[in-house]
Each structure stands twice: as C-alpha cells, then as structure tokens.
Amino acid sequence: MANDSSRLRISAVNDVVRIDFVDRDILDEATIRQIGQDIQRKLEPMSAPKVLMCFTVVEHLSSAALGTLITVNSLVKKKGGTLRLAEIRPEILEVFYITKLNKHFSIDESAEAALKALA
C-alpha cells in the first residue's frame, strides 16, 4: 500500500521499503529537508530496514540532496539495515562518481536488480 507524502512515493515491496522521488529536481533546501524528515519518520520505528530509493524521474540534484542521502544511509546502517539506490540517470550517476559517493552507496541499474539484491 502506498503512503504518499508531497515529494516522495513510499511503498512496500514485500519486506522492502521502496521510496520513489516524485520531482525532477531535488534542489530546494526546504524540499530536501522535508524529504529527509519524511524518510526518517518512516524508518524510525523499523528495525533492520531494507530500503530502495529510486531516482527514475530525477534530472537534477544538489550537494544538499547528497547530504540527505548520506544521512539516510547512516540511519539505515545504524539500524542494521540496508539501503540501495537504483534507476539513476547517467548525468546524476556521474555526480556520485565525482564525489566518490559511489563507494559509499550500493547502486543498482534497475529497481528489479536492487530488489533482488535486497531479497
């Protein structure tokens, strides 16, 4: 069952929390803050969460958005869970490589591949 917030579409795929971004641009600080709070609120009561974040529609993101992803990853790791990122456009993927955050995150080409890895 989907649980929609204003900027995210959060759904359950078996035991995986799937988070899809709704907006093409993840730039606005207030929006990024809201995204971080929505995700933290969702994950807070969970133990060892399996989380998939899909960037299918995302065309631009800022360093502030990267910061929020790092914070979410830290929260998931702290809870003994796993976070995987998927469906990242090549331009955005390059940002992860430039910042070397590809070493920090588990990144899959497709949601299907990520779900398989999380199974």
Binding site: S62, S63, A64, L66, G67, T68, I70, T71, S74, V95, I98, T99, K100, L101, K103, H104
Partner: peptide, 21 residues
C-alpha cells in the same frame, strides 16, 4: 576534501568540488 575516505560520511562540503568538476 569530501572524497577522502574519512570524509565520505560527512553530509556537507561537496558544493565547491562539484563546481570545480
């Protein structure tokens, strides 16, 4: 340098390097 291993988990400090890149 945000790309140093010790700094990878710090949420901020990537803006300047992205501009330079």
């Amino acid at each position: 340098d945000p790309t140093e291993d010790d700094n990878l988990e710090i949420p901020s400090g990537r803006g300047i390097m992205l501009m330079k890149a």
